[in-house]
Design a protein around this nucleic acid. Structure first.
Lengths: 145, 145
DNA sequence: CTACATGCAAACCGTTTGCACCCTA
DNA sequence: TAGGGTGCAAACGGTTTGCATGTAG
């Protein structure tokens, strides 16, 4: 409950109307421990008997990304876009190339590197994305069989 | 000349036939100092009076990616796929959010981090992607005006 | 009551595919 | 000359958009 009102505050602060759809979509993002697709949001809401049109989901996500409440990711080179609620601050991702599982990693090894690069290139740095790829223990085991 | 025959060797080694199209596409990738799209390859070849069907370009790029001769990138969250010839080994990218210019960065600050993460997560790491975003000097100046 | 949100269906557009023909090895 | 490579046109699929209707503030 507290959580919800917190998201409502975020919406208000951003000048967005608080609607049933938006709350449901944000809830879904918050509940998920890893980035998800627009379609996953659509399907899971549908399972919970909440039917929101896919285009509404895309539009909502777009607005939330604009307002910096949500981050948009293209982790796998091909795949569809993933979305994640921005409640954890800066983070990185570890992706299993076998089962496609995505693990969120807190902590950043790049702060000083970014600064040194800033000096070196005269860029005004505004951020970075780091994706690490590998095979999780389960998939390593499967590969032996 | 030497360069070309070198790429021909790479093709042969990978068990691929050496065709006019493939040579032209690889040439275009090699000449470019930064990752480019399939369409850019198509258009630039066309300017040089070499017309190769777009689907051939996509198919060629796909094969080259399979053979690890080319890397496929999704740097901007939305944008189309970029391709780059793998003649420089491991590298990272610095992207200007203003003019979309992409600068390739040699050297990697993440080798030891990757190893420590490997121990910590029991993942068998196979690589990573690092994209840094910011504004280049030119774009910073433009923003003042 | 008004401006923003939503549903629906159609468009969009980068990429992929099926098939007939071509050309390298 | 066989099997991979290419051109062409059509399909695909994730995402966006136009428009009429609904609803939060």
């Amino acid at each position: 409950m507290n959580d919800k009102s917190c998201y409502e505050d975020e919406l208000k602060k951003s000048g967005l109307k608080i609607t049933k759809s938006r709350k449901a979509i944000i809830d879904m993002l918050v509940q998920s421990s890893h980035p998800i697709t627009a379609e996953q949001i659509y399907l899971e809401l549908k399972e919970n008997e909440v039917e929101i049109n896919l285009s509404t989901i895309y539009r909502t996500l777009e607005v939330l990304v604009d307002k910096r409440l949500v981050t948009k990711l293209n982790i796998m080179d091909n795949d569809r876009t993933l979305f994640e609620y921005n409640n954890l601050g800066h983070r990185h991702y570890l992706v299993c190339l076998g089962c496609k599982k995505i693990i969120t990693i807190q902590g950043c090894p790049l702060e000083s590197y970014e600064k040194s690069l800033e000096k070196q290139t005269q860029f005004a740095m505004s951020g970075h994305r780091l994706y690490l790829y590998g095979y999780c223990l389960d998939c390593q085991k499967k590969m032996i069989d």
